[in-house]
Structures are given as structure tokens and as C-alpha cells.
Nucleic acid binder design. Sequence first.
DNA 1: TTGAAAGCGCTAACAT
DNA 2: ATGTTAGCGCTTTCAA
Lengths: 346, 346
Amino acid sequence: MPRIEEVAHLAKVSTATASRALSRPEMVAIATRERVLKAAQDLGYQPNVLARGLRQRETRIIGLIVTDILNPFHALLAKGVQDAAERQGYNVFLFNSDEEPQKERHAIDTLRGHLPRGLIVVPTSAARENLQAIAHLPMVELDRATGRPGVTTVTVDNVTGACVGTAHLAQLGHTRIGMIVGQLDISTAVERHEGFRKALDTAGVPYRPELVMPGHHREEDGRRAAVHLLSLPASLRPTALFVGNNEMTVGAVLAAQSLGLRIPEDLSIVGFDDSRWAQTMTPPLTVVAQPAYELGMTACHQLLAELDGHDAISGAHLQLPTELIVRRSTGPPPIRPPPPPAALRP
Amino acid sequence: MPRIEEVAHLAKVSTATASRALSRPEMVAIATRERVLKAAQDLGYQPNVLARGLRQRETRIIGLIVTDILNPFHALLAKGVQDAAERQGYNVFLFNSDEEPQKERHAIDTLRGHLPRGLIVVPTSAARENLQAIAHLPMVELDRATGRPGVTTVTVDNVTGACVGTAHLAQLGHTRIGMIVGQLDISTAVERHEGFRKALDTAGVPYRPELVMPGHHREEDGRRAAVHLLSLPASLRPTALFVGNNEMTVGAVLAAQSLGLRIPEDLSIVGFDDSRWAQTMTPPLTVVAQPAYELGMTACHQLLAELDGHDAISGAHLQLPTELIVRRSTGPPPIRPPPPPAALRP
DNA sequence: TTGAAAGCGCTAACAT
DNA sequence: ATGTTAGCGCTTTCAA
């Protein structure tokens, strides 16, 4: 790799001038600048960001920690962040916490050594402690909020989203509506649960705690929760399910199918977060869609704006809207024939 | 951020000793080592990798360039690489080329400045030129091969995979089998096409060039190609389709559905690469599955082995096997009633 | 507008 | 086994 010294030599200037021509062109005479640029081009010069970062004591790197890169929602978040960062000349160092506090901790420690300018994080349930180590670093919490004071967050309006999704079920006439909710130590789960409950109250549908099952955001959790709810006696069983994230929705749908329930004739399902899978499954799924790519972009813009000192906007809570997309997985509740009189039973 | 000087001071040793205690413990007395470790711990010391990298003239970073992080296959590749790298104390700098040579070029240039130890790349069609700039860097080509001499590649056995997938269709009795193939300047497409052709030859089924449609790996390409093939007159139309990648398969399935064709009664489909979508669509899709996660892991292991000088294994071509998973999207060809004699036609 | 020289934090060569 | 010192490649005073 050619060094700036070689560029300087070829352009017949000092390294200082070469550096200025490359990084702060306005400080250098036009003719000189062009000589240097040409020399750099000819040599295929690429600045050593280690040396530059060491000297300037800061880099053009931002860290991004997501909890599951295999989840298409998170992949979209990451792409949004990356595309926004690239446009402003930043690079993204991506880590996966796999929802494990320990991996999150490790990612943070590793990141620290790279002197990132800022951090965007989808926090795990233990993020409050983990993030202490870098409390000084400009930071945006994405998708979920830990509630730490003064921290910028970029999320969707989960309460309204869940409320609209649940209200859709209530309007169809459902009165036994179940929910499969995420970990209640994570903000999205709490807020979606709140929206769920609010919609029931508004619609005058009773909230039944026994129809609310918690899970850990994975497909298997959704499956297990759904099996439990759908195995209840017919009179207690929910006729509709509101599921708190995309992975658990997959599990719930598969569980319903394997129990022989038809969607939406026997069971209506509303999922949170759209996906290709939701669009192409049979029947296509009614969902509360989130603007995942825009969330990532927004988080990155916000972070970079804070870095560049565009006013003291730090600590803002940006909420993007969700959108209810009604497809074919929701319909009116089944009309159950009343059980035959006791005398006629076998 | 505390520097090593502070650690050294607290442990009452020189910075050199502190550095050794941290990086090469065997060179230091046990008691000293423990004092230093304790001091580092107490201060929350994290080495500045910029300074270290600058001094050692190499880092613990490997670059990874994939062509589409939103494609679950690539997300799995990336996760495999990352997990393998992390276990050996390496960090991964992930870039997305979006199948665009220019973005690939930019990723390579950016990466260069970070002095990565090595690079794992899913090459675009222009990779041969782009990669020249870093020909000296240890490198593994993943999923696809550019054919540059001496370069290590980690791929699946595409020829056999495509051959087995196509043979499955031939065995079911199909004689008009179409293929939707990727860009023919990318190795996977060429090899899968070769396997397709080989299977037809073996089965004695005629290869019909007019039933082979190229695409650019995207869902939309698959849709367009399928619409074309399935709009042919019944006597020319394929009764089975072999599709060269996962995204195009989605498009092909949606096209078939929108044309009112039943799968597999009217049309059999075999896709390349498994996915959740393939498992949960209706009917579940027969696929040639690839071990994506293992591909990523293998590529990373291979690269790190080369870095550590574990023999001169560079230039190897590692091929992992595929697996035909027969689900419900394939069946015997439709029995078309012979067209009525001309005399009876209206 | 340009050049000389110092120094970012770390590790490795050399000295003890 | 430990300390002293030079230097990785760059940017940024400071001086001219």
C-alpha cells in the first residue's frame, strides 16, 4: 500500500501539503491540489484509516448492534443504517447480539477499541447495564427503548400499531381475542401489549389475562404459545390472535395449521411486522407493517446529525407510524352451533 | 478511554511490560501479569486497535462482501462467517455490493484502508477487475468463483445439485422441462445450467433452448421469465420448471399462481436454495438445499487457516454437497386430453 | 500557501 | 523478566 509520503514525493510537495490537498482542498492552491490528486490517483493511494484515526482520535465508523440479523426485519434495519451511513462517508461495524446480553456486552467492548464515532443499538433486555461502559458515546436506540434518560430513540408507534391491529379484530366481531406477546422486559412488547389492551377497552371487549401468552420472540415461542391457546376447550379458545412479532407469527400460523384450524374461518390472525413470507403464505397475512428500512435510515441520520452538532437534538424520541395491511387471514368469528341439549348427548 | 500507560502506572510496571502481560502473557512473571490484568480490569481498559494495528501493520479484521444482505441465503452466509471469525478473535467488516460492480469496487477501496488481514467475497460479475487492487490480500471466493487462478473458493457442487433437481423432474415423467437461470457471467448460473443439461441428457429428455430463460437473480426476473414460459401455447409450454436461485423462485411461483396454474397438478417447480418461505408456502416447495451457514463458516475457517500459515492450502476449491428435499411442489406431468380431431373443432 | 516537526497509543527491538 | 526507545502513517500545530 502506497503511503502519503509517496504521493507527496511524486507531486513534489511535503506530506503536510499532500494531506491537506486530500482532506481539506480549500487550504491548498489549485495547481498544487491537482498535482497531488493526480499523484494519488496514479499510485492508487488509499489513506490508512488506522493512522488517520489514531491521529485525529476519531474515526468515520459507527457501530450497529442488532439482535438477530437472520430476521428480515433486522436485516432491513441494518441495510437502512448502512445506506444512510455510506452516503455520508461513514462505515458501519455490524454486530449481532442474538438477544444474548453477554454477546451484546462483547460487541460493545470490541467496538470500543475501534473508537466509533457513535452507536446504533437494538438493545437486549440487559442493555442498560451493558451500555454503561460507553455512556459517553453518541447513541441511538433503535426499534426498542431502554428508557435511559436523555437517550435518543427511533421506534415505531407500537401502542397505536397494536391498537389498530386489535381493533380490526374487534370490529370483525371477535370477543375472545388472544395475544402472543414478547418479553415483557423489552419496550416493544410492553407497548404492543398496552395497545392491545387499549383497543379491547375501547371496543368493550373483555381483556382476559389467560389468553395472553408471553414468548421470547422466536418462532418456537409463537408455536408453543399458540398450541396452548388453541388447545383450550372450544368455549374458552380465542377466535382471533394478535401476535407481537414476525417470527412468533410464523410459529403461530404453523401451529394453527397443524391443529387443523382453517385461517380465517376458524381463527383470525394479525401479525406485527410485514414480510415476504406474510405476503405469500396462504392465506396472505393481515399485518401491522413497520417501515423497517426507514427506521434504520432515520436512526442513522439522527445519529450523524448529532455528531455533526446540528443543534442539540440529542434525547429526542422519534416515532414512525405503522400501517395496518388487511389481507386474508382475518374475518368474522366462526358461528358455532350451540351445543346440543344435554339429553341428546351420547 | 484509559490508555495502556495508565494500566502500567497502576500496576507499577512499564508500558512494555503491561503490553506483554496483555498480549503475550507467557513472557511475563505470573505475579506481574496478575497485577497488570487486575489494573486493566479495574480501569476498564480496552486496547486501541487503531494504534495496535498501525504498529503491527496488521489488524484482526477480515472483510466480507456479499451481494445482497436482504437475501436470507446471504444473511446466513454472513452469520456463518461472523460466528467463525468471532471464535478466533477476528472481527468482520461487512459490505453489500447489491450486485453492482461499482459498489463492490467502493467496498474494496474502503476496506483496503482498514488493512484487513483477509477478504471473503461473493463476487459480482465484474469482480475480476475489481479485485485486482487487492490481489496480494489473502482471499476466499464464496458461493461463486471468478476463475482467477490460485484463488481459494468455497462453493456448493452446483452441477450435481442442479443435476439431481432436474433428474427428479425427469423421473416424474416430465419431458418439457424449463429452466430459469441466473446471469451467465456468474459461475453458479453456468454450473447449474450445466447440471440441468446433463440431467436431461442422462434421462433422454430433449434440451430445448427456448425453454431456458435468463434472469438477474431477482424476484422480478423470475416472475417475468415464468410468465413468458407459461404463456406459451399448451403444446409448447413446460410442465416443469427448474429455477436457479431462491429469489427468482418466489417470482416464478407467484407468476404461476397469478396465471391460475395449480402446483403441482399443472406445473411442477424445483427451486435452488431452501428457505423458510419455501417450507411454509402452499404447497411446500421441493428444493435443492444449500448449507449456507456452513458455507460461510467454511470460508472463514479456510481463510484464517491460510492466514495462520497452516500449510500452503491456498488455491483450494472446497465444494460442499447440496441436498434434494422433495416436498409437494413436484408431481407427475398433467395428462392432457389429446386435442380433438380437426374436423370437430368449432 | 507551504514545510518542518511533533505526537496520537501501541508493540517490538534492543538493552539490561 | 523488565525497561527504554523508536516508529507505524497520518494530521496538525507552528513557523516561514
